[in-house]
Simulated assay, not measured.
Amino acid sequence: MVEITGSFSSFSIDDVDKARDFYVGTLGLTSEDIMGGLRLTLPGGAQVFAYPKPDHIPATHTVLNFVVPNVDTAVASLHELGIRTDLYPSSEQMPLDENGILRDPNGKAGNGIAWFKDPAGNVLSVVNEP
């Protein structure tokens, strides 16, 4: 058996400086430059590695979810920063509101999830606390 002492996730980016500006300057995370990329520390202490890749292709799935107390407030804050949350079209299977928020039909007000992109085009989300 392999002895595992920890874990982290990673995703590629196309520009380390733009990623640092976004994740640290815009979203308020902390980072450390390591191995040519960024080790991002998330709220709660988990870490993720954003590494530069010359032939980067943005992920088409959500690579990072940010838990927030109220998705409406979080989306309003993202909009104030010029970040769009209307990535996907609303459909019967995925009914989104005008801000791109998918609501939990059985949830309380402020529940839901909304997606946005980082400068490299990777999909991120803000999702209400469970």
Results as ranks from 00 to 15, higher is better:
Thr62Glu: 09
Asp55His: 12
Ser31Ala: 06
Gly25Glu: 08
Arg20Thr: 13
Ala59Thr: 02
Gly28Ile: 03
Thr26Ala: 14
Asp33His: 13
Phe22Met: 06
Ala59Gln: 11
Leu27Gln: 01
Tyr23Asn: 10
Pro54His: 15
Asp55Gln: 06
Val48Pro: 02
Ala50Glu: 08
Tyr51Met: 08
Ile34Gln: 15
Val24Cys: 03
Pro52His: 14
Ala46Phe: 07
Thr41Ser: 00
Asp21Met: 08
His61Lys: 09
Ala19Val: 03
Gly36Ala: 02
Thr62Asp: 11
Gly28Gln: 04
Ser31Glu: 05
Ala59His: 06
Gln47Asp: 14
Leu29Ser: 15
Gly37Leu: 01
Lys53Gly: 13
His56Pro: 01
Asp33Gly: 05
Val48Leu: 07
Thr62Ile: 13
Val48Tyr: 06
Pro43His: 04
Thr26Cys: 08
Leu40Met: 10
His56Thr: 04
Thr60Gln: 01
Gln47Arg: 12
Thr26Ile: 08
Met35Gln: 11
Glu32Phe: 03
Leu40Pro: 07
Glu32Gln: 11
Ala50Lys: 04
Arg39Tyr: 11
Val48Lys: 07
Gly36Phe: 11
Thr26Lys: 14
Gly25Ala: 08
Gln47Thr: 15
Pro58Phe: 06
Val48Arg: 01
Arg39Ile: 15
His61Ile: 12
Gly28Ser: 00
Pro43Gly: 05
Ala59Pro: 07
His56Arg: 04
Gly45Cys: 09
Gly37Thr: 05
Phe22Cys: 04
Gln47Gly: 04
Asp21Cys: 12
Glu32Asn: 06
Ile34Ser: 14
Gln47Lys: 15
Pro54Phe: 06
Lys53Phe: 03
Pro54Met: 13
Asp21Arg: 12
Gly37Phe: 02
Gly28Pro: 13
Tyr51Gln: 12
Thr41Gln: 05
Pro58Glu: 01
Pro52Tyr: 12
Ala46Asn: 14
Lys53Glu: 10
Ile57Arg: 08
Ile57Tyr: 03
Thr41Asn: 09
Leu42Gly: 02
Gly45Ile: 02
Phe22Leu: 05
Gly37Met: 02
Leu27Phe: 06
Ala46Lys: 13
His56Met: 07
Glu32Leu: 13
Pro43Leu: 00
Gln47Ser: 10
Val24Thr: 11
Gln47Glu: 15
Tyr23Gln: 04
Phe49Leu: 14
Thr30Gln: 14
Pro58Gln: 00
Gly25Tyr: 05
Arg39Pro: 04
Arg39Val: 13
Pro58Val: 08
His56Ala: 15
Arg20Asp: 08
Val48His: 03
Gly45Lys: 02
Met35Cys: 10
Ala50Ile: 00
Ile57Lys: 15
Met35Pro: 00
Leu38Ser: 10
Ile34Gly: 07
Val24Asp: 03
Glu32Tyr: 08
Asp33Leu: 07
Pro52Glu: 14
Gly36Cys: 11
Pro54Trp: 08
Arg20Phe: 07
Leu29Asp: 01
Asp33Lys: 13
Pro43Val: 10
Tyr51Arg: 02
Lys18Cys: 03
Leu40Tyr: 00
Gly36Glu: 04
Ser31Cys: 03
Thr60Lys: 04
Ala46Arg: 10
Lys18Asn: 12
Thr60Phe: 05
Glu32Arg: 12
Phe22Ala: 06
Phe22Glu: 10
Ser31Val: 11
His61Gly: 09
Leu40Phe: 02
Tyr23Pro: 01
Ile34Val: 13
Asp55Arg: 01
Asp21Lys: 09
Asp33Asn: 11
